[in-house]
């Protein structure tokens, strides 16, 4: 997994609540057996019209946001299905950080497996960042995972929370499967005890 430490870039504002995973990546793109190449389909139904042409006023189609690295969105971002295609599409587009008042649990988890940092902040702070984001390239955000801070374009700093294990994995780009496999003995021990007590499992 790609490491995440510092990220500096333009933030795109998408001021909608309950952005679900069907909006992020509609089902017709779930037929892939790969992880890559989903970025062009990110937010497909909002981003393109029925004929497949770009919708000019959708935020990621505007010139100032085409290279956005950060997304600022409304409450309950990523609700709906467990499809990891959602964070794959976001990362493939080039967005490495999503900021919202809250995230759906499964989506939140999935982000960390893909080098994306989801930041949950109180509504007032998201509102401020949403205003910053509306200024496009004139409002670069600087995100520093190590110190858990976001530096705004006008010098103000916002701190955010993240649990220590996830932070550690993201900072170091760790392979979680590899980490867990180091605990094989414990797993085997657990299995032996369980086999004894509940052999039907």
């Amino acid at each position: 997994m790609e490491k995440f430490n510092k990220l500096t870039g333009v933030a795109a504002p998408l001021n909608l609540i309950n952005i679900d995973t069907d909006m992020i990546i509609p089902k017709q793109f779930l037929k892939t057996i790969k992880r890559s190449g989903l970025g062009v389909h990110l937010f497909d139904e909002m981003r393109y019209d029925d004929a497949g042409n770009e919708v000019a006023d959708f935020v990621l189609n505007k010139p100032q946001y085409r290279e956005a690295k950060i997304l600022v969105a409304g409450d309950n971002f990523g609700c709906g299905s467990s499809r990891e295609h959602a964070p794959w599409a976001i990362a493939d587009f080039g967005i490495r950080c999503v900021i919202a008042p809250s995230f759906a649990d499964i989506f939140y988890n999935n982000c960390f497996k893909n080098g994306i940092l989801p930041i949950a902040l109180p509504q007032e702070q998201v509102d401020l960042l949403m205003d910053d984001a509306a200024r496009g390239a004139n409002a670069i955000l600087e995100i520093d995972l190590d110190s858990q801070t976001i530096k705004g374009p006008d010098g103000g700093t916002i701190s955010f929370e993240i649990d220590p294990f996830r932070k550690h994995c993201l900072l170091n780009g760790l392979d979680e499967v590899g980490l867990t496999l180091q605990k094989q003995d414990k797993i085997a021990e657990f299995e032996a005890a369980r086999e004894n007590a509940q052999p039907w499992l």
Binding site: S82, I106, E176, L181, Q184
Partner: peptide, 11 residues
């Protein structure tokens, strides 16, 4: 998610 599917399959 799929990364966790892999994690469960392996561990």
């Amino acid at each position: 998610g799929t990364s966790e599917v892999e994690h469960v399959l392996a561990t």
